[in-house]
Simulated scan of single mutants.
Amino acid sequence: MTELLLPAGVFLIALLYSSVGHAGASGYIAVMSLLSLAPAFIKPSALVLNILVASIASLQFWRAGHFRWALFWPFALAAVPLAFVGGTIDLPRQAFQWLLGAVLLYSAWRLMVQARQPLEVKPPHLPLALLAGGFIGLLSGLTGTGGGIFLTPLLLFAGWAAPKQAAAVSALFILLNSASGLSGWLVSGQSLPGGLLPLLLAAGAGGLVGSWLGARQLAPAGIKRFLALVLLIAGAKLLLS
């Protein structure tokens, strides 16, 4: 049963998350945990799937003309080193997860309310972008995610990017953070688990479909609603785990 349910779950998560420029790490972890897979399998598998789906989403949104380098680099420059720092810190997880879960659920609610409201886009000031990127990178390392669930809502709420631009920037942001996390895993002497091919095929198919829909078919209001659903899933996972 696991051999059927796991690829199906991975496909659906990759499709949903990639439509908003995300890669699905929190969703993969949730599905694998529900199926009682070992932690030694879950973490590296989620990172590998994240890298694949984020790569596909980055390419799709870039080819559709939504990526903005000037918006991307300040956040990534500050985030990547602090994501490494965050990965070395061990906080009291229950209170921390509840706080983040509540923030994500509030963000989901705001996105649903504001889905059809017009957005006036203005670029962030460089110091503010660096500060926000560093903080998100730290949160990324602390939570073991790619950071997109924090970056995309911030870009939208602050008016720094339109929905598809936010998705494009978040996809590459997640790719870099996930690659950094996997490198740390391998450098520490760990290895990749076997049996990943069916999951990679499922994630690749879901990522292709979802990112194509997000980059070329979904209207901005649709992107916001899909993102709200992603944040709702991630927030519920943090509160219930």
Rank of each mutant, 00 (worst) to 15 (best):
W62G: 03
E120N: 12
A38I: 03
L59Q: 03
V85P: 00
P92V: 07
L4M: 11
I223S: 04
L35V: 11
P127D: 14
P124N: 11
P39I: 09
L172V: 09
A171V: 07
G181Y: 05
S140I: 07
G141W: 14
K43T: 13
P198N: 07
G214N: 08
S178H: 12
L172W: 00
L131T: 11
S241Y: 07
G184V: 04
L4F: 14
L238N: 12
L199H: 03
L176V: 09
L15S: 11
F173A: 02
W109F: 13
V10C: 08
W98G: 02
V10W: 05
A95R: 03
L201W: 09
L105C: 00
G210H: 07
A168Y: 01
G147R: 10
G159Q: 08
E3S: 14
A234G: 07
T2F: 05
G9S: 05
S18K: 08
V10N: 01
T152A: 13
S55K: 09
F173V: 03
I233K: 02
P198W: 00
R216E: 03
Q190P: 07
L231N: 08
L77F: 07
F135N: 11
L6D: 04
A54M: 01
F226Y: 06
G194M: 04
T145W: 06
S36Q: 15
L37A: 02
W62Y: 15
L175W: 04
L200Y: 02
L229P: 12
S55V: 06
Q97L: 06
F75E: 07
L208D: 10
A171Y: 08
L239V: 01
L16F: 06
G9Q: 10
R225G: 11
A179D: 10
G9M: 04
I13H: 11
A179R: 02
G133C: 13
A46H: 02
R225E: 13
G222E: 03
L5G: 12
A205K: 01
R68D: 14
L52R: 14
F11I: 11
S45F: 07
W73T: 01
D90I: 01
T143S: 10
L52H: 05
L138C: 11
G144S: 14
K122W: 14
S211H: 08
L35N: 07
A14F: 06
L200S: 10
L227Q: 05
L175A: 12
L82S: 00
K122F: 05
